[in-house]
Design a protein around this nucleic acid. Structure first.
Lengths: 198, 198, 198, 198
DNA sequence: TATGAATGAGGATTCATTCAT
DNA sequence: AATGAATGAATCCTCATTCAT
């Protein structure tokens, strides 16, 4: 498991801020060193490369995503509850720190470099697969409807989660993401629960 | 209505290709002129600025999105069919020309500049609002379940559409988007139809 | 004698305006063609080169200066009156058309190219020598004091004339150049007249 | 008070040389970096901008002009001597370093930009006003004739000084500026002294 | 650990000029 | 006589990175 020094964490954090606020094309060593309040060469004490920074960002985001997944899976046996947790935990984190989230910055990093993209995609698969697992288990236990495949249900859940976050960001954070998220989870629950209330 | 010359269209198209293939940070005037096979200064005969190019890209994508929406709305009275059309048309276009789609390149352009972002967000609202309208009408005619608000249903539909496209791209186009899309629409239909088969 | 077509005169004139208003570095073919309201290549119908334009400007200014000198010399026999005329005529012209004057734009053209500089210097010598002549004749006729050499007197007269114009321009033309000029001539007259009023 | 580093001084100095030898349009970052013998980007370690360089040049020239004025005013109580000093000091400096003089390069910088022009004009007013003061005091003490206003006398003195320098430059420095200057001062002295020798 | 100074490569853009029409 | 499209060379400036200190 990779360990980041305090300075490295600081640099990663400011990188995420820069990306979130003004796009990757503004993630320059100059801007970064200004944000961290050290000189440009000093950055190279902590990372060998700009690519090293980018890779570390993804490593960091992956760790953070794994942490969320762990928490969700540990939350209880019910698939529907886990799905709810999946939403809640992502929203909680993103609200706590708007930038430090997979779903926030990863797109921006894609296409920068094949190695980097691969790592990001791996990270995205991580949560998609975890969610898919949850859904499948929910179907096996009879909690979740089985007339729609787990794959399709997963796409719906992941899509809604991502779209909500995207919308929140594009609206300049001017609605209560956690509240809206909860409504959305309820809607999804209604739609995927086995023998829904009709 | 903005009119683009042939050269302008060519430049916009190659810009979309460049963004799609290697990210905006590779959309340089040099790369662009190489792609269009003219000299760098020649670009400036057709656009005043790089920003002018970016804005024109968004204008172009907006026009293209409007075209899709028009087609979808003209396809018939059924909301469920229109939603199906919404998926199909987007997929058809994206498969025909992988890059010329709102949902493909717009994120990359965000955060580049406030004016540009605003234009992109306006474009995104366009399709979201159109979809929301369709859903509401479907609820009024009784086609679509009413126990979940149109807003939530719209998020689910838009989210799934976008996530499917994202996945397709991240997989390097290695599944049949239109086929998967059709499956997904059916799943969604099942979930949102009034008095579903249970 | 060089003859300029109407279009050539127009181009020369607009060139002078551009130089006067925003410096030579803004005398570009683009700006020029915009000012003349024709296309850029059209400029090359009338001048072979940018250098050709610059040379023509100097030719034009030289002609204009010669015209002034001719008028001054024809104005009467008195050296003091001719000196007064030298001031008056320059000011009159410069006020009528702020830019079409040797003393206005020539410095800006210097150093651009040896051939050009030479031509400008020749033009400047023209008026300086003419003035020197006038002074010498005034000294011979006893009108002008002889205890100071014609050369020194000429420097004083030319210097004052030029400095006044420079000041006027730098003040954004916010004083009455002709009125101030007249005062200045009177002062000079007092200083150079033979047996002044003491 | 602005402080320039050694490198900054070097860059300013070479800028003045470039302007003096080949005009502002040849004051390019490339030429400048070649003259200073560093790379182009290195220039930007020392100045934020080209405009920053230009402004610094004017700051430098202003400082140098102030230095001269201080020296002149400190040279003794006689207005006529101070005027003589005004000439001598300017000539001495200009001969020592042909380029480092207000009167040499400032015109070239005018019209480049309003902020710059303003700064140059302020600098020019500085010496004109100082000279005007000297003349007025000379009139009050009875040293200088009072039948001509200080303003007109100042124009004559400044004009002669400037014109002499201009002529020297245009002649490619092929006369002894200090010697000619001294003659000119004597002539001026004769013309402005109270109760001249007639 | 940190920095001031430097740089090669490349960024967007403008220049004077040409050519086919 | 005029233009739309094009270009090679040069413009200012920023990039990631290195090195001596």
């Amino acid at each position: 498991m990779t360990r980041f020094s305090d300075r490295q964490k600081e640099i990663i954090n400011e990188s995420l801020n820069l990306i979130a606020n003004s796009g990757i094309q503004n993630l320059t060593i100059k801007n970064l060193s200004k944000a961290v309040n050290i000189s440009e060469p000093a950055i190279y004490r902590h990372f060998t490369d700009k690519m090293d920074i980018l890779m570390s960002i993804v490593t960091y985001l992956t760790m953070s995503e794994k942490w969320i997944l762990k928490k969700v899976l540990a939350s209880g046996p019910s698939a529907l509850d886990q799905i709810k947790g999946f939403f809640i935990e992502h929203f909680r984190q993103i609200v706590a720190d708007r930038n430090s989230t997979v779903l926030r910055c990863s797109e921006a990093l894609l296409q920068h470099d094949p190695r980097l993209s691969q790592k990001i995609i791996a990270m995205m698969h991580l949560s998609r697969d975890a969610l898919n697992n949850i859904v499948e288990q929910g179907q096996q236990t009879g909690e979740i409807r089985t007339d729609i495949s787990a794959k399709q249900l997963t796409i719906i859940i992941m899509g809604a989660l991502r779209f909500l976050i995207t919308s929140w960001q594009q609206s300049a954070y001017d609605f209560d993401l956690e509240a809206e998220g909860e409504k959305q989870v309820k809607a999804i629950r209604k739609m995927i629960i086995n023998g829904g209330n009709r």
